[in-house]
């Protein structure tokens, strides 16, 4: 029996729009991500998938419902505790890579380490070297992000998301800024990582991309439609 990485119970996110109008970005979402899953949250823009991703990524909190990680409802955690949990629980991969241009590739990959509050049972430097070697970017370790290609930048971002050995990789439109060939390479990389047991959740509006994962969570108007 695989353990649950994160589960959402009746999660809603609503905004009071002025007057009595209430807008539901998410409505009664129930969702469970198991360890080792490779899933996609798919839906058109404005469907609420970004909000869902922010809640799963611990960047946002629901207005109703529970978010459970390791049998604990984390909605009640304060900002500092949430930040610390975020650093250990989730690794982000973004559409725009979001690397810091003034840091070298290696420094970018090691950036989350500086914010970690845990003791490491491995050497982060060595892990960074290993990830760079594995992703074919070791020769770029002292380069800066704006000096390398988009595909390489996304590999750096994936390495950065893995440096903390998080429970979940959350990839927001990871191929959106890449050409088809490079996008495919990135998706293949996710496939390989998943085979090694890493839990990956891809957020996308492209059905093609979603189909490359093993489970599609369709979302429309703030509700999960399966």
């Amino acid at each position: 029996m695989l353990s649950t990485v994160i589960s959402l119970k009746d999660v809603s996110k609503k905004y009071i729009m002025g007057g009595d109008t209430v807008f539901y970005a998410l409505k009664n979402v129930n969702l469970e991500i198991k360890e080792g899953e490779y899933a996609a949250i798919v839906g058109p823009s404005g469907s609420g998938k970004s909000t869902l991703m922010h809640i799963i990524g611990l960047l946002d909190k629901p207005t109703d419902g529970k978010v459970i990680i390791g049998n604990k409802d984390i909605s009640s955690l304060d900002d500092d505790a949430t930040s610390t949990l975020r650093s250990e629980f989730v690794g982000f991969v973004f559409q725009q890579f979001n690397l810091l241009n003034k840091l070298t590739i290696k420094e970018n990959i090691l950036l989350p380490i500086g914010y970690a509050r845990k003791k490491f049972d491995y050497n982060p430097e060595e892990r960074a070297e290993y990830l760079m070697e594995r992703f074919g970017i070791l020769d770029k370790k002292d380069s800066f992000p704006n000096k390398i290609s988009g595909g390489q930048q996304q590999r750096v971002a994936i390495a950065r998301s893995l440096i903390m050995k998080p429970k979940l990789i959350l990839a927001d439109e990871p191929t959106g800024n890449l050409d088809t060939k490079t996008g495919n390479e990135i998706m293949e990389l996710f496939g390989e990582l998943n085979k090694e047991g890493i839990t990956i959740l891809v957020v996308t509006h492209e059905p093609d991309i979603a189909e490359r994962t093993r489970r599609q969570i369709k979302i429309k108007d703030g509700e999960v439609v399966k």
């Binding site: 500092d80 930040s83 650093s87 982000f92 989350p112």
Partner: peptide
């Protein structure tokens, strides 16, 4: 602002 967002996403606390 974007950099601040990235750092927060990577686990930076408010005080960091």
């Amino acid at each position: 602002i974007k950099e601040i967002g990235v750092r927060r996403a990577l686990g930076a606390r408010r005080n960091d």
